[in-house]
């Protein structure tokens, strides 16, 4: 927790320095208007690209909807289950629950990816901030590495460890079956 807060604060300072440097460089309002109109000429082709793309994909899907046959059979509308009785997933209000072991990775992702954004700000302003920026950034990266070391040492990155009890349960269940 402490690590995260200190990192975020350092990152934020880094970010502010960079933004300050960039604003100083941009200058007058007229310059900003020019920048804006340049951006517009770069952005509208992307918007056009997006629209053409979506229209084309929708057309393809519609075409296959029209061309394809419509058939009915008894087992067609059941989920693929490979011989094991289908578990109903939550999307249709089913009761079956999946253990999601991956939520921790999502949390780490949020922490680490946020810090990537701060580093992006440093990298793009690299020539302006010079050695001072480098020292700040290396402290920042150092804390990142320490945080990584920490989450590794507490075993938060080990999937196998967190799978163990469930596996043990399965093995026990199988043994019970074979005993009977």
């Amino acid at each position: 927790m402490f690590i995260t807060i200190s990192e975020l604060s350092i990152g934020f300072c880094l970010f502010l320095c960079t933004v300050k440097g960039m604003v100083k460089e941009r200058g007058s309002i007229r310059g900003r208007v020019v920048v804006l109109s340049n951006q517009l000429t770069e952005i509208w082709p992307i918007a056009a690209y997006f629209i053409i793309l979506v229209v084309m994909l929708a057309f393809m899907l519609a075409l296959s909807h029209v061309l394809g046959p419509k058939t009915k059979s008894r087992a067609k509308n059941t989920p693929y289950e490979s011989g094991v009785i289908a578990a109903v997933a939550p999307a249709s209000g089913g009761e079956t629950r999946f253990g999601n072991h991956f939520f921790l990775y999502a949390i780490f992702f949020v922490i680490f990816d946020l810090e990537t954004i701060f580093l992006f700000a440093w990298v793009i302003a690299f020539d302006e901030v010079g050695w001072a920026g480098f020292i700040e950034a290396s402290i920042f990266i150092g804390i990142l590495l320490v945080a990584l070391l920490y989450i590794w040492r507490i075993g938060a990155l080990e999937l196998k460890h967190r799978h163990l009890p469930f596996r043990q349960q399965q093995i026990d269940a199988q043994q019970n079956l074979s005993n009977r």
């Binding site: 989920p79 578990a87 109903v88 997933a89 999307a91 999946f98 991956f102 990775y105």
Partner: peptide, 15 residues
Amino acid sequence: SNSKYAMLGGMRAAA
């Protein structure tokens, strides 16, 4: 997809 294999695959993909 509401099917167990799809669900597990989706979770793996996310992680």
